[in-house]
Every structure is written in C-alpha cells, then in structure tokens.
Amino acid sequence: MNLCFSTEAVDLDNQAPNRNRRESRYFWDELNHLIAAGGFCRIEIPYEPKWDFGGRSGIPRTKRSMTTKFGTVAGYAAFLRENGITGGIACIHMNPSLFASSGILPMYLGASKHYAEEAVETAAEAGCGIVTLTATPPYFASGKLIGDGTEEDFLAAVAGVIADLAAYAGEKGVTLCVKNEYWTLVRGEKIHDFVEKLPASVMLDVDTANLKIAGADPAEMIRKCAGRIGVVHITDTAFTDTEEAWKTALPEYPPAGATKVFRDPGDGEIDFSGIAAALEETGYDGLVVFNPKDSCDISRSILRSRWFADHVFRSGATVNSAMTAKENMTACHSAKEVSGGRPEWNRI
C-alpha cells in the first residue's frame, strides 16, 4: 500500500481567524514541507474550479492555478518533488457539486464533464494515476436537478457522463474511480447497483467515514468489492445521522446538532483495525489516502495522521479487530514502547 495525505484537509470555505492565509501561494508552498515532515511523500488534491473564478491562483487546486504559478502542470509536479513530496500528486478528487447550483441538468452535466476531463488531463500531466469523481451532488441539490424527472433517469444520465470520462481517462492512462459520499444518491450500499451501470474500468473509492455514516460497513465493502477498489480513503467520524442531515442543503453541517463530521484519524469511532485486516486479507496494494477533511488545525492533523498511520492503522502490535481506534491506539502505543520499533511498511 502507498500512503498519501489529502490537501482537502485545508478548509477554504469556512471562516475562522487566519483563513485568509490559505489563499496565498506561500501557505501552500510551506504546506508541502509540513506534509513531508509528517512523513507523507504523496498528496491528493481536490480539484476545485471555484477558485479559478475568483482568480485565487495561489491555491493549487486546478490546472489554471498550476499553470499560472508554475508554467505547466509538470512544472508544479517537479516543484512538489523538490519540496519533499517526492511521490507527487497521487490522486485527484473531483467533486462537481459546485455546478449543481444552477439547478439546470444539462448545465450540470456539461460543466461536470468539462472540468472532470480537465482533472484527468491534469492528472496525466502530473504523473498522477487516479482521478476519483464524486458520483452525484448532494441529495438536496440533486433534487433540484431532477425536477420533474426521475432519479433513475438522472442516474442514467450521470452514468453516461462517467462512461465517457472513463474512456477519456483510459486514453490518458489514468484510472477513474467513483466516490459515494454519504449525501449522494448512491450512498452506502447503493453504490453497488450504480457501479453495475458503469464500464468495468471504473473503480471504487472506499471512503471509510462516508460509508459508515451512510450505514454501510467499510470492512465488508472492502471484502465485497475486492479487485474493484481503486483507492481507499481513511476518514474518521463520530457522527451518526439520526436526523437525516444527509438530505439537507449543507449535509456536512447537521442542523439538528452542530458537529465536526469528519475528524482526524483516530479521533472518531471507526474500527480501523477491522479495515486494516480487510485490506490485508484481500491483498489490497493500492493507494491509501489519509483525509482529515476541513481540519481545524492542519499541522496537527498531519502529525495525528502520521501517528495514526504508524501506531494504529496497521502496526507491529497485535491487531484486534474488536478494538475501537482509540483502544487500538493505546494498545499499539504500549507495544511500540516495548518493541521500540517503527513499522516500515507505510513509509514507502
């Protein structure tokens, strides 16, 4: 397995003191050093054209930004390698929900395809092998796109776009994956029926917290989909969606009770020892992305992720699949103190 850290940890959308720093290039240049110092040599980037529209090219989240600041995408990839991210961009996440705000289905499908193709081009030029695409916008926004139509027709139209993208990605040597956040129309186990409509080249993105919130068992999903998993996202949560927040306009901000839905690995309630066991059992040897999405403290999240990777997710200590992450963290920590060894498997 190859470990990776997602720059989706950087929250650009919500306001807290010092958010302004995140719009300038100096912040992102230094972030590479912080990620590398945390022991990660690969990054995932979220592909977010919304910053293009505001001319925020210091934020390296699109082809436009990279070419504005570094001349070419390859130039940006070289810059990353020179600054500690020696494995470069390993995954690009494209979430086209931005384009659903129009409420106009053809506009959504057209814009999604255009920018997803651009994300694939960017991946190819950066030497990145994976683009993972959020399957549908949130339930609330999807409803506006569907209008008087049916969900079945909407999903068929989306599947058509994904099939075209898969062919394009294939030409570029990039693997296309689909991601099913808990607020999509194909959340949790519903992804299985949707994937049946897609070309065999389209792989699955197993995102642990998103699956759990949607009521699916991530470890079981790994076993069931073995051989068709293109990327695994290690995300943690303590959120239980009892009030159907997934159906609201801002589903990652549950209106019935404010909470941080996505937490640093180990700070939630996911059974990661079981997930690690499932990955080992099925012989998964692909990319594992740590994504403390929208972190409250980015440096802390990088270091917490590294500690978690070394001591909890899979370590030299005995893995007890019945343990919660926090229990396992304690056990692994004790084992490490005894052995004094640092597991090398995830230092690749």
Partner: peptide
C-alpha cells in the same frame, strides 16, 4: 465571512468541546 454553514448553533457548548 465565506460560507457560514449553520443558521443557529443550539449545542454551542457541546460543539466547543469537540476541539
């Protein structure tokens, strides 16, 4: 302020203790 994601946080103290 960019995105303000809640209308009104009713569980302010509980939310504070998350981080």
């Amino acid at each position: 302020w960019k995105t303000v994601p809640y209308r009104q946080i009713g569980n302010f103290r509980e939310f504070y203790y998350e981080d």
